[in-house]
């Protein structure tokens, strides 16, 4: 299996000065665009990029403004993984060497409508790195609930009021669902921990076959946060334990960060418009769910 120490590390100092996602129309401070930009800088020129309907495709390809400075294509909303599989298969059949195909899909495009195609892609072990940038809702269509929208979130389809406290389900356990396919490499990440994300993309780049990264990527527009705090809030999510940093490799889970103490969940939630309405009881429910999850992860993965 790929050993990270063997791969030259990519960091801010040595990474290519070339920009591959530039002049796009994402909202100011968009976390998704940080994820796309950084990953492409690790992957480099010989990359085919496929993006399903969603914010990152919507802001990148508005004729004649073409913001991807490499080969890129918009796919159908459910068909990102399968189109990427086709690209990889086509490149292989044409004898192209040293190429990588990458997908950037939202949480909705990944955990909901695109899941079937993604499962097929991993099952076939196609040479594709699939990156899910998780902004926890369908943002491009105006902030509706997805399968990765966390408990309590107010969205335009889960309004918070007297009868319903916003979203009433917890996030799908996407990382473990992906790992259950016995994928060669899967990881979770956050743009709040950019070096960790770069390392994981780099590792996936050097792993042949299907790989997957679930990266937490803030959305100031959908979350109700100031544009300048996009990185900070994505770090807070990890520090309070609602988002965890982990890897799945050689059939083993690995927790990359296992803090003795978590930062305050309440502080994290209260910084964001989407959680403003939550009562202490709602917050307690979030904390309990977090603790259950961590207890299990620590027991099984450490």
């Amino acid at each position: 299996m790929t050993n990270l120490v063997d791969i030259p590390k990519v960091n801010a100092k040595n990474m290519t000065e070339k920009e591959f996602f530039y002049g796009h129309k994402a909202c100011a401070g968009c976390g998704g665009s940080v994820a796309v930009r950084l990953a492409l800088k690790v992957l480099g020129e010989r990359t085919y990029t496929a993006l399903p309907a969603g914010c990152m495709s919507a802001v990148g390809f508005i004729y004649p403004q073409m913001a991807f400075n490499t080969n890129a294509i918009i796919t159908t909303f459910p068909g990102a993984a399968s189109m990427a599989s086709g690209i990889a298969a086509g490149a292989k059949a044409l004898g192209q060497k040293d190429v990588k195909t990458v997908v950037f899909a939202g949480d909705g495009g990944t955990a909901d409508i695109g899941f079937q195609a993604l499962s097929g892609m991993i099952d076939r072990n196609d040479d594709v790195l699939y990156i899910c940038y998780d902004n926890e809702a369908y943002m491009n269509t105006g902030i509706q609930k997805s399968g990765l929208t966390p408990y309590g979130t107010k969205t335009t389809t889960t309004p918070a009021g007297k009868n319903i406290p916003g979203t009433v389900t917890h996030k799908k356990n996407l990382f473990e669902i992906i790992a259950a396919h016995d994928i060669a490499y899967a990881a979770t990440a956050s743009i709040g921990y950019p070096q960790d994300f770069l390392n994981k993309v780099n590792k996936a780049k050097h792993t042949k076959g299907a790989t997957f990264i679930h990266v937490y990527a803030s959305c100031p527009t959908g979350w109700g946060t100031p544009t300048e705090t996009s990185i900070e809030i994505a770090k807070d999510a990890v520090d309070c334990g609602l988002i965890f940093l982990a890897e799945f490799e050689d059939g083993e889970y690995k927790l990359n960060r296992n803090p003795k103490e978590f930062a305050s969940v309440k502080d994290y939630l209260k910084k964001q418009g989407r959680f403003k309405h939550m009562t202490d009881e709602d917050i307690q429910c979030v904390i309990e769910n977090r603790d259950r999850k961590w207890a299990r992860m620590r027991k099984q993965w450490l």
Partner: peptide, 25 residues
């Protein structure tokens, strides 16, 4: 920088003001 507008190649950072959106990150 979400827009990649900060330029590092000259030993001193510069900003491409054509594409900076002023997010403040």
């Amino acid at each position: 920088c979400p827009d990649g507008t900060i330029i590092k190649d000259s030993g001193q950072i510069k900003i491409d003001m054509d594409y900076c959106k002023g997010c403040g990150v």
